[in-house]
Design a protein around this nucleic acid. Sequence first.
DNA 1: CGGTGTGAAGAGCTTCACAGCA
DNA 2: TGCTGTGAAGCTCTTCACACCG
Lengths: 221, 221
Amino acid sequence: MPTVSSEELAAAAGVNSAKLRKDFSYLGSYGTRGVGYDVEYLVYQISRELGLTQDWPVVIVGIGNLGAALANYGGFASRGFRVAALIDADPAMAGKPVAGIPVQHTDELEKIIDDNGVSIGVIATPAGAAQQVCERLVAAGVTSILNFAPTVLSVPDGVDVRKVDLSIELQILAFHEQRKAGEEAEAQADAALEAEAGAAAAAAGKSGKGPDGDVPAVMPA
Amino acid sequence: MPTVSSEELAAAAGVNSAKLRKDFSYLGSYGTRGVGYDVEYLVYQISRELGLTQDWPVVIVGIGNLGAALANYGGFASRGFRVAALIDADPAMAGKPVAGIPVQHTDELEKIIDDNGVSIGVIATPAGAAQQVCERLVAAGVTSILNFAPTVLSVPDGVDVRKVDLSIELQILAFHEQRKAGEEAEAQADAALEAEAGAAAAAAGKSGKGPDGDVPAVMPA
DNA sequence: CGGTGTGAAGAGCTTCACAGCA
DNA sequence: TGCTGTGAAGCTCTTCACACCG
């Protein structure tokens, strides 16, 4: 299939075809009237725009189950990410290969960041260690952090943090599940609450908010 | 701190105080003019609305690194989720405890779902096994699925699927990182592309889209 | 013809600003 | 007086509908 129409793409992505055409149009006119979009060319243009044509070295700190799962995750390589190093505080882990990469001790953190020109760090440590790791990463020159630890990180301006909460998607499913079961439903407003819900419980915690608003910065403990 | 103002909550959550008050108002009038919101009462009301006061039994299928990480994740219990069972296809895993719960073999899947009244399933299997597991879960009565496998699941109407792509947040960070580095920047449009980007490559794959639009249903391989 | 690119209309969400109540 | 609750204004994002072109 060398070419594809906005209608087909829209159906595959689950959106309206007009929206898709309009979005594409912001990148330029990559389609051909009466024909559609050349798949290969389109993929290249979008990849370039999203930064997938670049190589991004990342380090993963905290090689427990989650860190190991991330290290083994095939999706990274295909999106232009290269796992430059795995770092763990446990000396017993040092040298042990995970996903073919030997784990290095936290002592080496600054050197690793520097040697590899790493600007993106992934934190998969327990909650207690996350803030400290974060500070060391930032001090060493990392400017984007993906946080899997269940804690809110505070970072200086200019550093982006995105927090991944493995249970939030479950919570959304449960929310809809509850709706299926009963009630008459007050519809949209509640979704908005998700972002705010935690603040009541936390009532503190400088946010370190991500660049977009689509991931709640604060969630209940 | 028994009471809190919309201004404080808004600052903590990183939103505008008017928005927060408006959102809360959809749930009812739980604040007191001139005073603020009673924290305990507010937390309860929001918890109830989000379904956190219910107990949701879930099963996790696929006990590799990721499945184990999920089983150990503390955030579930505090949000009303109870891991009813861990299921894996590897007979060698059967009986082995993970996070204090013995792993059961896939053969038991239907019985487990039925016995525990499970309506939410988590898939953490390799991509190849996911669709088949999904079908068995649905056939057994599961109506909400959280999919960590890097594949698009197709499901019948009435079943909600949410796909968690561990690399998508990294991709968003890289996108912004790229922007920091250079360019003049065409701003908003590109974010929208994230949801559609994969469709060009996939150009197939019935979507099984989640209840909200905020998680892309299709992503590049 | 068929399908893109896009101005204009429409819908939904956010913010303002202030009446009203403890 | 202080802060909530909310109509109305403003803004952004989505959808429509069609001119235009291969």
